[in-house]
C-alpha cells in the first residue's frame, strides 16, 4: 500500500472512531454436537456514511500500523 493512500485511510479511520462509525459484529459459533450457539467471534465493521460498509481488509493493516 502506498503511503499517501495509507495516510488518507488513517485520517478517515481516526474520524470514524470519533464519529463512532466502527461497529462490532458478532459471528456465532455453533456446536455441531448440540446445534447450540457456544459463543461468537467479535469482528470490527466500518459503517461509512457515504461508502457504506468498508471491508476490514481495507483498513485493518493501517489501523495496526498506527497503533
Amino acid at each position: 500500500m502506498n503511503w499517501r493512500r495509507s495516510i488518507s485511510i488513517e485520517v478517515a479511520l481516526k474520524n470514524a472512531v470519533r464519529q463512532q462509525q466502527l461497529r462490532v459484529h458478532y459471528q456465532p459459533q455453533v456446536s455441531l454436537a448440540s446445534g447450540r450457539i457456544k459463543g461468537a467471534e467479535a469482528l470490527v465493521r466500518w459503517q461509512h456514511p457515504t461508502l457504506g460498509l468498508v471491508a476490514p481488509a481495507y483498513f485493518i493493516g493501517v489501523a495496526e500500523e498506527s497503533v
Binding site: Q27, V30, L32, G39
Partner: peptide
C-alpha cells in the same frame, strides 16, 4: 446453518 443467514462458524466440538 442457513438459519444464521451468513458467516456462520460451526463448532465441530464444543469449546466449553
Amino acid at each position: 446453518a442457513t438459519f444464521w443467514r451468513c458467516e456462520v462458524a460451526i463448532l465441530i466440538r464444543g469449546i466449553s
